[in-house]
Design a protein around this nucleic acid. Structure first.
Lengths: 255, 255
DNA sequence: GCTGGACGGTGTACGTCGTACAACGTACGG
DNA sequence: CCGTACGTTGTACGACGTACACCGTCCAGC
């Protein structure tokens, strides 16, 4: 189990599925009742509704109106995850920002990723190292690299920066998802949670031992209205990240 | 299921466990065969050996030499995760870097977190929003805030920066874990994986369609000897992040 | 046009998980 | 000294992914 990762199986088979390679479609046997796209679409629907933990082969099969095991005719769960991710990447809008400055273009890349994770929070949970290089992944990668055109950095450094940017946005999305999940299945909002925690903390916490933690923790909680504000963390973090890239770019292209 | 998150249950109960609140220990009934620390220690051992996916109540009970259900007398799985995380945080070494510059001190904080995730990769997988404020968490937070003493930033901004730093290190640790996991349970190293993928990609990829992706992807792969080099990603990303913080700090304390 | 065999769809079954529940034994408070 | 609160345990339930055997379908080669 635990296939919350892409490319778990045979890469050749996975790639054939991703690119809908016609040589891998069998010639004999009865007609298929469904096609791969229908399966992937329904799987995305399940994950959108119930999250990655709610994505089960049984549920996908139910939505499709077929028996559970029929889904395996099209793809196992590992391959299904690859296909789902590639499908949402292929469908994601990609704005043309050519002509603007690198900071604005790179910021737009971050925003596009953020929108994707907003629409499909489960996508932030599947890791994409050793990525399934499907058409959606490739188109996305090509588009996101283009945002750095003319910034003066060499190819390898551009890839490094993009990797960090994408990791940052994915982390924000995961945290935002964790906040939602905590709210949902504890049935408590932050205020209720703190109301339950405060009396015990008051009895047990020695303020002299943690002066900075208590002062700063309370200040941060007041400032954001919560222990963790995903919206603020994203905006703040993105600016710091872009500032860091700017140092590198200014060094490469002295003004 | 899916309790890979902290503080899933009643906060008051969880906190009482974290701080070993004696008022929550019952007075009647037979003597307990174990103590909470033994359970937590064994659980950490299981997770160190088999990862978070391999952490099951049955396995913890086996190690302790008791029946599965006995573990629930001490803590459910949700609380157990909180307790495990707090325990490894409490045990982690914290170097005294007072007197050095903020960049070195903050870098040391990152390195300490990295060491923790190296020793306990599963710790990077449990999210800590709405954190279980146990003694280990508090000591860690206090220590990490101290690294920013005298840097000139206000309290809320220090918390923002620390949050981003910790998120970055955790993301690196997760990615490194994903690389290890991919290697382990695909039974393929990167070279083998690419050897399987290359023929299909050659047949299916139109180079004219993805000029940057192919050029830069290959350059990055050559430079790092792999599709993703966690060590390089960490070193590169940390410098960019610290550069970004430096912009903020220089603005706060003009030289 | 025929037929062997390749293939799609399905029901059953196995081993995994977290944990609810009831039965049983223990040891403290009154 | 005894009622009862509590620890320990075995059994059981409903999830999960998916291996496997079975049956029915339909194409390739003749």
């Amino acid at each position: 189990m635990s296939p919350d990762r892409t490319s778990a199986g045979d890469p050749a088979r996975t790639l054939a599925l991703l690119w809908r390679d016609p040589t891998s479609v069998p010639r004999r046997g009865p007609r298929r009742a469904l096609d791969l796209d229908a399966v992937v679409t329904e799987a995305i629907g399940v994950a959108d509704d119930d999250g990655l933990a709610g994505l089960t082969m049984r549920r996908v099969a139910d939505r499709l109106g077929v028996a559970t095991m029929s889904v395996y005719t099209y793809a196992g769960k590992d391959d299904l995850l690859d296909l789902m991710l590639d499908a949402v990447l292929a469908a994601a809008p990609r704005a043309d920002t050519s002509g603007r400055g690198w900071r604005e273009r790179v910021g737009a890349v971050a925003e596009e990723n953020r929108d994707l994770y907003r629409a499909h929070p489960w996508a932030a949970e599947v890791s994409t190292l050793r990525p399934p290089l499907g058409p959606g992944q490739m188109a996305r990668y090509e588009h996101e690299l283009a945002a750095w055109d003319g910034c003066g950095l060499d190819d390898v450094t551009i890839d490094d920066c993009l990797t960090q940017l994408l990791g940052f946005v994915r982390t924000c999305a995961r945290d935002a998802g964790a906040v939602r999940a905590a709210r949902r299945d504890s049935g408590m909002d932050d205020a209720q949670w703190w109301a339950g925690a405060a009396p015990v903390l008051a009895r047990v916490l020695d303020p002299a031992r943690y002066p900075r933690a208590i002062r700063i923790g309370e200040a941060a909680g007041r400032a954001h209205g919560s222990a963790h504000d995903p919206e603020h963390a994203y905006r703040f973090g993105l600016e710091r990240l872009l500032d860091g890239f700017a140092v590198l770019i200014d060094r490469a292209v002295p003004r």
